[in-house]
Amino acid sequence: MNQSRWRKFRKRVVRHRMLILMALPGLAYLVINNYLPMLGVTIAFKEIDYSRKGLFNLLFGHEWIGFKNFEYLFRTDDAYTITRNTILYNGLFIVLNTVVAIAVAIVLNEIRSRFMSRLYQSLILLPYLISMVIVGYLALSMLNVENGFMNKIILPLLGIDPVSWYSEPAYWPYILTFVNLWKNVGYLCIIYLAAIVGINHEYYEAAVIDGASKWQQITRITVPLIAPTITIMMLLAVGRIFYSDFGLFYQVPLNSGALKPTTDVIDTYVYRGLMTLGDIGMSSAAGLYQSAVGFVLILLSNWLVRRRSRDQALF
């Protein structure tokens, strides 16, 4: 019995040898780049001593200190603030980015002029290609207390007193959400546009004959047909919900301490805390914590998706 299964396996290996060989380089890449470094998770539980070099020492050499490297993450009231900020911001970004990106994609798809459609696509993608450091300075040119566009032009027009933007935490949830949307929507939108373009035109033709309005076409045909893409994109985003865009939360508020209640997220907290220490054990601990939570969340949401529709789940 066992032997026959083994024989079967060998037969299949021989039959698909070319396919297996073709997969080898990719597998090797995956193992070398994604799996081997995973041995490094042990660093999070260790006190690193640099006089001992090499992989063997990394895995077995240094002193085990349990969860001590994790302590600083949960030590103060900040733990609540940064976790809340991280989850709320990223949750909001996932929903908002998806909704706006789909809306924009649908609108772009309706533009008949090929040239204009391409032009808008490029314009909307442009912010995605700009470095966050530059985005930070663009924001500064808007929000500068003395010479900023907002305080100098917009607010006087509306008869509102100038605002000291970089010391008022209350405005930053809106500012960060806007900047994030402005920056990332173009990229997502292109992915959804690709999905929409792939929809067979006959569906729409049939719908028009049946007298469906434009709105009905969108809600009954477009959205359901790109649902698998939406699900995958959302699932992938949920897996990274504990990671924040460091540039967005550090560069755009110009590292202003007064804004920390609404701009501090796990990544910025770790950065500020370890700047002086440079301790790789503690930074690995933060990374491990983030990916562990992301892993659980992705399993959970995948499970939820599977319950509704098996086909759309990732695994």
Partner: peptide
């Protein structure tokens, strides 16, 4: 180390202002 990381964060919130 744990305390230094936490205190660094507090200082970065207030000091510059």
């Amino acid at each position: 180390k744990t305390e230094v990381a936490a205190v660094s964060n507090v200082i970065s919130e207030y000091k510059a202002g």
